[in-house]
Design a protein around this nucleic acid. Sequence first.
DNA 1: ACAAACAATATGATTTTTCATATAGTTTCG
DNA 2: CGAAACTATATGAAAAATCATATTGTTTGT
Lengths: 164, 164
Amino acid sequence: MTQQTTKAKRVEETGRAPGFVSDYLLYLLAAASDAASAQFHAKVRKAGLRVPEWRVLACLADTDGAMITQLARRALAEQSRLTRIIAQMEDRSLLIRRSDPADGRRVRVYLTDSGRALAAELVPQAQKHEAALMEMLQGNEGAQLKPALKSLLAALEAQEDWQG
Amino acid sequence: MTQQTTKAKRVEETGRAPGFVSDYLLYLLAAASDAASAQFHAKVRKAGLRVPEWRVLACLADTDGAMITQLARRALAEQSRLTRIIAQMEDRSLLIRRSDPADGRRVRVYLTDSGRALAAELVPQAQKHEAALMEMLQGNEGAQLKPALKSLLAALEAQEDWQG
DNA sequence: ACAAACAATATGATTTTTCATATAGTTTCG
DNA sequence: CGAAACTATATGAAAAATCATATTGTTTGT
């Protein structure tokens, strides 16, 4: 019983219980994503952006002139949400919207100079933060993490292509 | 230029661009978490639960009688949000709240029989779904994923304990 | 060329989530 | 003991996200 009390106390303190959840892949993914993002997302907000806005900015820095639907996928946000985020970012002159001459339904989104400047400030910070995270994971666990995630993503996308 | 056109077209189709984002750890974590969860979360909603409710249910199935703050951490939700989720789940008789006799500020949450029954239905489904995901990742990438995530989480929590 | 089917974006209404702070209970320490 | 500091939960107001669907433009098949 001394054993039990000690264990219960440790569980209480660490917030980590044994059992199903703490070894469940979807929990580990969501918890790791949340925890790993927390610090950097705080910086993003201090830079005056909300998280989805930062994602859009980063996506556009990679691929300028993307359309709303693509941005929604890449920035992990829903389409109608993206439409509104883009509108707000346009109001703040971080980007501009232009309808695609080749297909009038499409709206292509381009960074403005100030949007590009903000991206040029934040992307290196993101990379620095990422490097710090990777350094926490020295050893082969660290080396395997990104490839494993990519391969999971690839498998899931392949599945989607067949099914939905 | 034939090369370029082909590449641009593939990017357009797959929605995956080269560049910073597609190799960025925080993107990979968030995207993998979203994609991996999507199917199962659809089942959760068909079972009449929202995602945070399912998480609470699973946490309580592991550790009954947890307090709100603990549940918030484990279910990856903010405290005030948890308070409301718990209230709604209590209205639906999935759980009951009891104030802790040892410390009147604390509210301990216990599954009801019907809450436990729902958990007993969903947890095995979650495990089955998880097994299917792991099967997609045969080879050592799969074997390394969970340990890598756990070790990242552990490192981040250790950091939090020092800093804030 | 025209209608039907399809695709991309936008919008109104609602729900979910967050933020700041209030409330209630507990511990610490002079 | 009693005030100050602290902890756990609750709550009102505001912001963010989602859902269903409208709108606009394009493609397909006849």
